[in-house]
Amino acid sequence: LVRYRTISKIPQITLNFVDLKGDPFLASPTSDREIIAPKIKERTHNVTEKVTQVLSLGADVLPEYKLQAPRIHRWTILHYSPFKAVWDWLILLLVIYTAVFTPYSAAFLLKETEEGPPATECGYACQPLAVVDLIVDIMFIVDILINFRTTYVNANEEVVSHPGRIAVHYFKGWFLIDMVAAIPFDLLIFGSGSEELIGLLKTARLLRLVRVARKLDRYSEYGAAVLFLLMCTFALIAHWLACIWYAIGNMEQPHMDSRIGWLHNLGDQIGKPYNSSGLGGPSIKDKYVTALYFTFSSLTSVGFGNVSPNTNSEKIFSICVMLIGSLMYASIFGNVSAIIQRLYSGTARYHTQMLRVREFIRFHQIPNPLRQRLEEYFQHAWSYTNGIDMNAVLKGFPECLQADICLHLNRSLLQHCKPFRGATKGCLRALAMKFKTTHAPPGDTLVHAGDLLTALYFISRGSIEILRGDVVVAILGKNDIFGEPLNLYARPGKSNGDVRALTYCDLHKIHR
Rank of each mutant, 00 (worst) to 15 (best):
residue 168 V to Y: 06
residue 262 W to H: 01
residue 171 F to A: 09
residue 97 Y to E: 01
residue 441 P to C: 14
residue 396 G to H: 06
residue 217 D to F: 05
residue 225 A to V: 09
residue 142 V to N: 01
residue 417 C to K: 05
residue 276 S to F: 03
residue 102 T to P: 01
residue 94 L to G: 10
residue 349 R to L: 06
residue 101 F to W: 15
residue 276 S to C: 04
residue 234 F to C: 04
residue 294 F to A: 01
residue 258 S to N: 12
residue 422 G to P: 04
residue 241 L to E: 01
residue 353 Q to L: 07
residue 157 E to P: 03
residue 313 S to R: 04
residue 124 Y to E: 01
residue 181 A to Q: 04
residue 434 K to Y: 04
residue 243 C to A: 01
residue 322 M to T: 07
residue 102 T to L: 07
residue 76 T to E: 01
residue 280 G to I: 01
residue 369 P to S: 07
residue 334 G to K: 06
residue 78 L to W: 06
residue 292 L to F: 01
residue 284 I to Y: 01
residue 114 E to D: 12
residue 265 N to Y: 01
residue 192 S to L: 05
residue 112 E to F: 05
residue 425 K to M: 10
residue 297 S to C: 04
residue 270 I to H: 01
residue 78 L to Q: 08
residue 128 P to V: 15
residue 231 M to Q: 07
residue 372 Q to D: 15
residue 173 G to T: 13
residue 432 A to D: 03
residue 263 L to V: 03
residue 374 L to V: 14
residue 252 E to H: 03
residue 290 T to N: 01
residue 226 V to Y: 13
residue 339 I to V: 07
residue 212 V to F: 09
residue 259 R to D: 15
residue 185 F to A: 04
residue 82 P to A: 12
residue 223 G to F: 04
residue 283 S to C: 01
residue 139 M to T: 05
residue 413 L to P: 09
residue 368 N to C: 10
residue 168 V to L: 14
residue 115 E to I: 15
residue 300 T to D: 01
residue 69 A to G: 11
residue 165 R to S: 08
residue 391 N to G: 12
residue 222 Y to K: 04
residue 178 D to I: 01
residue 262 W to Q: 03
residue 311 T to K: 01
residue 196 E to A: 14
residue 224 A to F: 14
residue 64 E to M: 04
residue 378 F to T: 13
residue 258 S to R: 14
residue 220 S to G: 05
residue 220 S to N: 09
residue 206 L to S: 05
residue 113 T to V: 10
residue 368 N to R: 09
residue 433 M to S: 06
residue 309 P to M: 01
residue 249 G to Q: 03
residue 346 G to N: 13
residue 146 I to P: 01
residue 170 Y to K: 01
residue 145 L to R: 01
residue 71 R to K: 15
residue 111 K to C: 03
residue 290 T to K: 01
residue 197 L to C: 11
residue 166 I to K: 01
residue 282 P to Y: 01
residue 331 S to N: 03
residue 298 S to Q: 14
residue 67 L to A: 04
